[in-house]
Amino acid sequence: MTTDLHHLAAAYALDALDGAERRAFEAHYPSCEICAADVDGYRAVTGSLAAAVAEEPSADLRSRVMNEVAVTRQLSPLSARSSGNDAAFMDRRRRVVASLAAVAAVIAFLVVGNAFLASGSGTDFDDILAAPDAVVTALDGETGSIRVVWSAERDQVAVFANGLADPGAGLLYELWFLLDEGVSPAGLFQPDSDGVVRTVLDVDDLSGTGWGVTIEPEGGSDQPTSAVVYVGVL
């Protein structure tokens, strides 16, 4: 577990983080005043670095661009995300497709795995999955995988995970709802000895942009106190 997310602002501005770290930092910095200011400052530097290598493209590029623009619809100005996270935003379409695949995978899993879901929480799982508004998000991280199925109608999420590492003595995983500004705690979960998680959490009625997971001391935290270990965009 690292706590040096704050030190990644320069590398982030240079696009020098790999995918997982970039997503983790993007989940972190909008809610961190210091990092947000650092990113702004460094982006002005990278803007200068870019301008310093300015170069003329071929003359016909302009008409190619303008022709495509003429037949391209613009996005709605009402964005779930801030305009700064455009690249992440453009990823969302791909993720929606991935999410649909994930729904199928989770349903297939449920059919097969229903036997060991039967104890107690099985019904909740089924209900959340069956909710017409269920949204499945696959979270990326170091080891194993986490899927979060969210029903805004029910104000509940189901957390599925396999192969999750033991967070360590006195620690557990905390799920965060990523908001336009900052994060909101969404509950705690713990893998069993096989690294399996099947937990239903009650969540606040919020409109978020994704999910993040950190490792926190027992009892949980109000704000993340460590680096994001899993993250997924809605």
Partner: peptide
Amino acid sequence: TQEVYVELWKLAPRYDADKGSASGWIATIA
């Protein structure tokens, strides 16, 4: 470069001048 401009065109309605300079935003996307 062409893809960048089409992306800029699509995203332009969401550009927020308060969130930083336009040139910085464009260079970042590129």
